[in-house]
Amino acid sequence: MRKFFYFFVATACLASVAFAADSQIWGEMRIPNILSYGQEQSLKLGALFTMLQNHYFGKIFLAILVLVPLVFFVHYKVIGPKVFSHEGKKVYAFDMFNRVVHQIAAISFIVIVPTGFVIVFGDFFGGGTFVRLCKNLHGIFTIPFAIVVIPMFVMWVKDMFLHWDDIKWLMIVGGYLSKVKNPVPAGKFNAGQKTWYWLATLGGVLMIVTGAMMYFLDFKIEMLNNITGLSQIDLLRVSAILHNVVGFAVVALFFVHIYMSIFAIKGAIHSILTGYKEEEEVKILHSSWYRKLKEQGKV
């Protein structure tokens, strides 16, 4: 028994030595990673990352956290929510598969976004166990999102391409600046939903990839170094910068998505829980889709 234990310990030690010798950061790669040791042509990403993280990232996240909800608060008070009858007929919009995929992504985002803010404002929370826990949750809840992001992309992609309606929708900001219930030009998804879709899927994949690179840190994918022409440490710096910058957009539109589904359109969240949208809501907010459904005799 003891023999096996020693064997296990020796193997573990050797494995970690091999790991250290293979390191892309602290082993042989340490020289090419150091700028002034023959890397004069480098992009100087270390200095850029230091400047951005020190002066801008935190402030921009704080601005998003305060200003986006503030704009919505004013919108809610001044223009108010759109209220549609929940007594009338309903339109079946999302099947079971759509709903499950969306729910898994939703739960992931509900954990990932706030824990991300805790990491960004880690000094406010004093670091330590709580922030470390949030950092780990931030990573763990990426797994369910990573599983559903491709099905989500595929199941909705045919409805998400640019359409003339989207231009018209953008010109009137989706009708959200007026209290009148005029039909708004939009198919099954309006221009706002389309923007969020592309950001959440393509941007989401980018967030997963950059986040995973920072999580695993010391990995070796030579192809990645060859294609980008970056050393390992510069790849990590690019990841950190992209993760923050794409994060601004994801977080801002995530807030928009929540405001729309819960506050701005009363009861809109039920459509992704039950699959049914109110007929009046579809008639006004997705008028082109409604017309199409009518031609097909589905409403």
């Binding site: 950061i25 602290w26 340490r30 990673n33 150091i34 700028l35 002034s36 270390g46 990352f49 230091t50 993280q53 990491i119 880690g122 004093g126 670091g127 330590g128 922030v131 470390r132 950092k135 920072m214 840190l217 440490i233 990590l236 710096r237 950190a240």
Partner: peptide, 23 residues
């Protein structure tokens, strides 16, 4: 640095030109 506060995010390593911080 204070290891009880540190969350192991790796940002210090990205900022360091010498690859000094290790995890």
């Amino acid at each position: 640095h204070d290891k009880d506060k540190c969350i192991g995010c790796g940002y210090c390593l990205y900022a360091c030109p010498f690859g000094a911080p290790q995890f």
